[in-house]
């Protein structure tokens, strides 16, 4: 990567973090991301899992 970067691109860090956060939310989250908002209920309601449910199956991620 260094050849293409030239000088350190610190703005890349939040960008890469955001990319992986988006992938985690879409493919793997089971309540952790909404726990700060919903508390204990986040795991039980599991909104992101349920909303992205069909997409997770059809993108090939392991499920139930």
């Amino acid at each position: 990567m260094h050849r293409a970067l030239g000088r350190p691109n610190l703005w890349l860090l939040p960008v890469v973090a955001l990319i992986f956060l988006a992938l985690f939310a879409a493919l793997f989250d089971n309540g952790a991301l909404l726990a700060p908002l919903l508390g204990e209920a986040a795991g039980k309601t599991n909104y992101l899992h349920e909303f992205f449910h069909d997409g997770r199956h059809l993108l090939g991620v392991p499920g139930h």
């Binding site: 988006a22 992938l23 939310a25 879409a26 493919l27 309601t45 599991n46 909104y47 349920e50 909303f51 992205f52 449910h53 069909d54 997409g55 997770r56 059809l58 993108l59």
Partner: peptide
């Protein structure tokens, strides 16, 4: 788990693939 209805899950499919 019925917290999200089937029609919303079908919409969620398109959102999930777009986000991916």
């Amino acid at each position: 788990n019925e917290v999200v209805s089937r029609p919303v899950q079908k919409l969620g499919l398109i959102v999930a693939v777009t986000l991916y």
